[in-house]
């Protein structure tokens, strides 16, 4: 991938709020044997929100690379960091993010499963389906609008 900042934002918003949302709603309904509740929905919104900021940082790092590219391996490293950041906020800094205080509350194990599945679905879609429905997407650094 050779994303632009606008492309990163557009792709992130579209994929997390479609593919990611479908998986999240399943979690909200307790489909996987997890405690049902809206916390998964709120966490997804925080992941998107923080992600828009992280994209700024990634574009800066990218400008140090001669090819100005962002290999899949770096996408994975970035995703690991973004998940870890949420965990750090909740578990270590003990910050209460608005909307996450609702029952059944935070559960580290279920967060990791939820986040992992959302990320995997977003990644696989971005590598395949996006190219098929938006043929201009790969030439425009991830912009689909």
């Amino acid at each position: 991938m050779t994303p632009t900042l606008l492309g990163r934002w557009q792709t992130r918003l579209l994929l997390t709020e479609t593919v990611g949302l479908v998986i999240t709603l399943l979690f909200c309904g307790g489909t996987f044997g997890n405690p049902a509740g809206p916390i998964f929905f709120w966490l997804l919104q925080y992941i998107v929100l923080f992600g828009l900021g992280w994209d700024y940082l990634y574009i800066y790092i990218q400008s140090w690379r001669w090819d100005q590219d962002w290999p899949a391996a770096l996408q994975w490293i970035a995703a690991l960091w973004e998940g870890l950041f949420i965990i750090l906020i909740v578990e270590v800094a003990n910050l209460k993010l608005p909307g996450t205080g609702i029952a059944p509350g935070w559960h580290l194990g279920w967060f990791m499963v939820h986040y992992g599945l959302v990320w995997l679905a977003v990644f696989i879609t971005s590598q395949s389906f996006m190219r098929l429905i938006f043929p201009r997407w790969r030439f425009r650094g991830g912009q689909w609008l």
Partner: peptide
């Protein structure tokens, strides 16, 4: 990157020339 007087690049242009920041 340069090594042994050869200048390296995966393709004939930096990759972002096809669809990234450099294309724009």
């Amino acid at each position: 990157l340069v090594e042994n007087h050869f200048e390296f690049q995966p393709f004939n242009w930096p990759k972002a020339c096809w669809g990234g920041t450099l294309r724009e």
